[in-house]
């Protein structure tokens, strides 16, 4: 099916500003200022001493991964498979993975983890609860900006896992991905609906436009998806991430629809989350019964990784929510760069 509108030009995003020694090394290599960094060329101890969830490491990792998606403007496509960058990426991944492994409970009881996600807490204090009842338009726009690093590539990180599955699990996952990509209609692609929402909210809908504005806590969620998607060894983790996203999405999307209605947002803005209420109610069922059940029947040893994926993505989501809610409670922006076209409070 053809789009009703003319295709948008495909542009690679601009390189971001560095946030420390690791991201400086990666960005220098991407700019061609230095040869791609070899592990030995990074300041001694820089990787080991870096905050695993911090701005420098997460931006460095994000830039390494972006080479596998759309790359950056002016950066050679060849660098995607540069051994120096891949070597550094591996070191960054190991620090990130070690921190996540230490910070989650672990285990192998997938059913218990999923059961916990299927309970709807009426007294929860999350971002969508806040936005629904008390959120202001500037807060909603900031939330959309932070989430844009994922949603403008929505479903892409999960597509990496397709060749790593087989049989019924693969078929069900592709059904979900097909829906994410608009079920054959380019105008209904979820990334496109998100871009339409950004435009309606007066934001720039270009891919990667807000990389400099996004906090490490937002980048870490995308990095975790890319990490699990790009490593076959972590395919169970990717499925855990996906099930967490799908199972928690519908009720939260409903709250965001109500938030937007309360704030007087237009129909193109509301449509993104309205679509996710219905789509993710289906995806929940397809992932639970169509992907997880046959996957664990065929590869029961993946249960530990699925649990890890659920717990790690929950941890990262909680960190993101904590940051937004604590900053907003103080009336402060959550963005590294304030939105230029926005008066900060409305």
């Amino acid at each position: 099916m053809l789009s009703s509108t003319s295709p948008r030009p495909v542009t690679a995003p601009a390189l971001p500003a560095p946030r420390g020694p690791l991201s400086s090394a990666v960005l220098a290599a991407l700019r061609g200022i230095s040869a791609a960094p070899h592990a030995a060329e990074i300041p001694p101890g820089a990787v080991g001493q870096a905050d695993p969830y911090g701005e420098d490491l997460q931006l460095a990792l994000y830039c390494c991964y972006e080479l596998h998606y759309r790359g950056f403007a002016g950066v050679s496509d060849d660098l995607e498979w540069d051994p120096g960058l891949l070597g550094l990426r591996r070191q960054l991944e190991q620090v990130f993975l070690a921190a996540l492994g230490a910070d989650v409970a672990g285990g192998t009881d997938v059913a218990a983890e999923i059961g916990a996600l299927l309970v709807e807490p009426v007294d929860a204090a999350g971002v969508s609860h806040h936005l629904r009842h008390a959120g202001q338009l500037w807060q909603l726009r900031e939330y959309v900006v932070q989430r844009s690093l994922y949603h403008l590539k929505e479903a892409d990180p999960q597509a990496w896992v397709i060749p790593r599955l087989s049989g019924p699990a693969k078929v069900a996952l592709v059904s979900v991905e097909h829906d994410e990509y608009g079920s054959g209609n380019p105008d209904r692609m979820h990334a496109r609906l998100f871009a339409d929402m950004m435009t309606e909210l007066g934001l720039c809908a270009e891919y990667g436009a807000y990389l400099d504005a996004a906090q490490a806590t937002a980048l870490a969620e995308v990095n975790f998806m890319s990490l699990c998607g790009l490593h076959r060894r972590l395919r169970g983790g990717l499925i855990g991430q996906l099930v967490t996203a799908e199972l928690t999405s519908s009720p939260a999307s409903d709250r965001l629809v109500r938030a937007m209605r309360r704030l007087g947002c237009g129909p193109r803005a509301i449509e993104f989350y309205a679509e996710h209420i219905e789509a993710d109610a289906v995806h929940e069922q397809l992932i639970r019964h169509g992907v997880i059940a046959p996957l664990l029947a065929a590869e029961p040893e993946l249960a530990r990784d699925v649990v890890f994926g659920i717990q790690a993505s929950t941890l990262l989501a909680d960190r993101f929510a904590d940051l937004l809610l604590s900053r907003w409670a103080q009336g402060r922006t959550t963005l590294r760069n304030p939105l230029p076209e926005l008066s900060h409070r409305r």
């Binding site: 009881d109 799908e246 929950t314």
Partner: peptide, 29 residues
């Protein structure tokens, strides 16, 4: 159309498998 309203609603969530009672925003996947 289902909107997941069939889910069990609970107060004082302390037994989440790994969550903290925070929601995940609209993860939308």
């Amino acid at each position: 159309i289902c909107d997941t309203s069939h889910r069990r609603r609970v107060r004082n969530v302390t037994a989440r498998g790994s969550g903290s009672g925070m929601d995940r925003g609209g993860r939308g996947c």
